[in-house]
Amino acid sequence: MNPDLLPNLQQPYRQFVTDYLKLLLASARRAHRHMDIADRGSIHAFRVAVRRLHTWLSIPGLLPVTDKKLLTRLKHHIKATNALRDATIHNKWLKKHGYSQRVALKPPSLPPRWKRLCRRLEASIETAAQIHEDRLNEPFSCRGASVVQSLFNEFADALLAIRGPEDIRGIHHSRILAKQLRYMLEPFAASDKQAERLMQEMVSFQDCTGMLHDLATMRDALAPAPSLRAHIEREMKSLYQIVETRHIRTREQLIRDFREWLENCDIPPPDWV
């Protein structure tokens, strides 16, 4: 997102969040208008825009009012693009490693009534903007950092809980938290180098664990020949070693980095262990 369009971080929390959500909704609407079912790039752009909007709306504690039915409908648009996205990634990997097997690329069948969903989301955001609570009048730079703190606390615990490359559920859970952290840090990262570095750590973690998830999905969905299955599992172990070396074993340093950033935001950090 263009940093020039971002609301001021010193705005009251409620105003910043609602203004930012309106920007994300406008981005999703624009991506939908420009989407061509025959163009995988435009489908991916729509998927990313909707995912960013959905993530912000679903972050715990971000807004006092969130319509779960609207979140579910928004999620359906992301899920509709999953098969095409997965097939594209799987085929790219198979081609790279010299396999002739391919997954069929089927255009997504998106749910109907996108415009109506957008109008209802807009109304929900406007409703949240009218809520009067003292805590929502704090500057976003302060209260937003508190939300980041809470998410990172969960992420740090989730890293410790991962049991190995076959712990797909644990890896997926930590990846979801990393995604929420990444998107919450984006407004700060536009003007804060320290926040940008932390955000890039989350991007790196997402990339590695995302590929792990893709390989596990390919292994389970394709019912591959034993030699291909063994190759996929070797790749999974190799990727997990990267995750373990770069992220799990460096957890304490990451905690120190987040602690330092929170202190710079005047947020007392928790006693992470």
Rank of each mutant, 00 (worst) to 15 (best):
Q241I: 10
L239A: 09
H213E: 09
T217Y: 11
H247Q: 04
R246E: 13
S227I: 03
A230R: 14
R219T: 10
L239K: 13
S238P: 01
M199A: 06
R219W: 06
C208F: 05
C208V: 10
D207Q: 09
T250K: 15
P224W: 03
L212C: 03
S238H: 13
D207M: 06
C208K: 10
Q194S: 10
Q241A: 15
I232W: 02
S204T: 08
R234M: 12
A230D: 11
P226T: 03
D207E: 13
Q206M: 12
A195Y: 00
I232Y: 03
A216L: 00
M211N: 13
R251Q: 06
K237H: 13
V203C: 04
D207A: 12
A225H: 08
C208T: 11
R229M: 08
A221I: 01
A195H: 00
Q241R: 15
R251W: 07
L215V: 01
V203N: 09
R197K: 15
E233M: 06
F205A: 07
Y240V: 05
L222W: 01
R197T: 15
A225C: 02
M218C: 08
I242N: 03
L212V: 01
T209V: 01
T209C: 10
R234G: 11
M202H: 02
K237G: 14
E235C: 14
E196V: 00
S238T: 12
C208E: 08
S204R: 10
H247V: 07
S204K: 07
E244K: 15
P224H: 05
Q194C: 02
F205E: 04
L222Q: 11
I242W: 05
A221D: 11
L212R: 00
I242A: 05
A225M: 06
L222R: 01
